[in-house]
Amino acid sequence: MATNRAAKSGFAAEAQRKINSKYSEELAQECLLWIQQITNAPENTSGDMDNFYDVLKDGTLLCKLVNNIQPGLVKKVNESKMAFKCMENINAFLEAARQLGVPAQETFQTVDLWERQNLNSVVICLQSLGRKAGNFGKPSIGPKEAEKNIRNFTEEQLRAGQGVISLQYGSNKGATQSGINFGNTRHM
Score class of each variant (00 low, 15 high):
M1H: 08
A2H: 12
N4A: 09
R5C: 08
A6L: 11
E14P: 00
Y23C: 00
E26G: 12
L27T: 08
L27S: 12
A28W: 12
E30C: 06
L33V: 08
L33N: 12
Q36T: 08
Q37A: 04
T39N: 04
N40Q: 11
A41F: 09
N44A: 07
N44K: 13
D50A: 10
D50T: 14
N51F: 05
Y53P: 12
D54G: 02
L56R: 02
P71D: 10
G72V: 10
V77H: 00
V77Q: 00
E79T: 15
S80C: 09
K81D: 07
M82N: 06
M87D: 10
N91Q: 09
A92C: 07
A92W: 03
F93N: 11
L94P: 00
L94S: 01
L94I: 13
E95Y: 08
Q117G: 03
Q117D: 05
V123E: 00
V123G: 00
I124C: 01
G130Q: 00
R131G: 06
K132D: 06
A133M: 02
A133Q: 02
G134Y: 02
G137A: 13
P139S: 08
I141H: 02
G142M: 12
K144P: 02
E145P: 14
E145I: 13
E145S: 14
N149P: 00
I150G: 12
N152F: 15
E156A: 13
E156F: 04
L158W: 03
R159F: 08
R159Q: 10
A160W: 01
A160H: 04
S166G: 03
S166D: 11
Q168S: 07
S171R: 05
N172D: 05
K173I: 14
K173P: 01
G174L: 08
A175P: 00
I180N: 03
I180V: 09
N181E: 14
G183N: 03
H187F: 14
M188E: 15
M188H: 15
